[in-house]
């Protein structure tokens, strides 16, 4: 038995020793929707970038928005697919870092307020004041479309914090979960990312007899690819530009579905100033 175990573990160790790639370019993405298969989805993007950039590119999965920002700040990832708020936070922490690309949809992003059918609420173009006193779920605590913008509109219309407006406030963790929690009736109202709503609707995951959109926020800028400023110095000059080009040239619908976006367009730090203003206003950014 002893010998068997020794042999077994030696084999394991040989197979599983993590290879340390010198100078691997690493990226991550905020876990904003279905987390399973996150790795298989983004590994394809890593392969695409490896081919385009002719350097080793690796993806690492993270469990939260905060972890994505921390990894970027600590230079464990050099490139990240952030939300509006996490991108602003990350760029504030890493001087010299820039937003280089965003989704075609991102300059005009929206949050959908959704409600369970038992509330009897119907879609309206005015902010639904009637949701006061009901139960409400945000998405992740660090999300732009699932937290920052809905909280902004709630505070704007009620002049009170969400805790005081609703009988119960939850944080589902991500957008798909917000939809399923409202659909199951665990929460009466929720706020979710409109892209994820459309994607899940198309995929047949949403039962519209149980959950429906009751209000759409005005548009705001959201997701973006942000890269560290020291990448040129550490990985060879011109890499930032090449990463940007590779992202803008990404046309494979299979890869784009991971985000989900129709394509990528250029972005700059200045595009996200509205997010900074709103973040400061509701106290999520200091």
């Amino acid at each position: 038995m002893l010998r068997f175990l020794v042999g077994f573990f030696l084999i394991i160790s040989v197979i599983h020793t993590e290879q340390v790639f010198a100078n691997t370019f690493v990226f991550t993405a905020i876990p904003d929707e279905d987390e399973s298969k996150l790795r298989s989805r983004f590994d394809k993007v890593a392969t695409y970038l490896t081919n385009q950039l002719a350097i080793e590119v690796k993806y690492i999965p993270v469990k939260s928005y905060g972890a994505a920002v921390t990894a970027f700040r600590n230079n464990q990832v050099q490139l990240a697919w952030f939300g509006g708020l996490s991108g602003v936070r990350a760029r504030a922490l890493v001087s010299g870092s820039t937003a280089i690309a965003q989704g075609v949809e991102d300059p005009n992003f929206q949050t959908y307020f959704i409600a369970h059918s038992s509330t009897g609420l119907k879609k309206s173009s005015n902010f639904p004041i009637i949701i006061a006193g009901k139960t409400f779920t945000f998405g992740s605590k660090g999300s732009t479309s699932g937290r920052l913008m809905p909280e902004f509109y709630i505070r704007k219309h009620f002049s009170k914090s969400p805790n005081k407006v609703f009988s119960r406030v939850g944080f589902s963790g991500n957008h798909s979960r917000t939809i399923s929690l409202v659909q199951s009736g665990a929460f009466q109202i929720g706020a979710t990312n409109f892209q994820v709503w459309k994607k899940d609707l198309a995929a047949g995951k949403i039962d519209t007899s149980k959950v429906s959109v009751i209000w759409e926020t005005p548009s705001y800028p959201d997701y973006n690819w942000t890269i560290r400023g020291d990448v040129d110095k550490n990985f060879g000059s011109g890499l930032i530009e090449r990463v940007k080009t590779a992202l803008l040239n990404l046309k494979d619908p299979d890869l784009l579905a991971s985000f989900p976006r129709k394509g990528f367009i250029p972005a700059s730090n200045a595009d996200f100033r509205p997010i900074v203003t709103v973040g400061k206003q509701i106290g999520l950014i200091e």
Binding site: L2, F9, S13, E18, V20, I60, N74, Q76
Partner: peptide, 30 residues
């Protein structure tokens, strides 16, 4: 069944080899 005292040093060595050190770009500045 597998936690023999004698194997402890081996387990430690194997564990050190297999855990993902790859990302540990630990910088003292952080």
């Amino acid at each position: 069944k597998w936690s023999h005292a004698k194997l402890v040093p081996l387990y430690i060595v194997v564990s050190l080899m297999v855990i993902p050190w790859g990302l540990s770009d630990i910088s003292i500045t952080n």
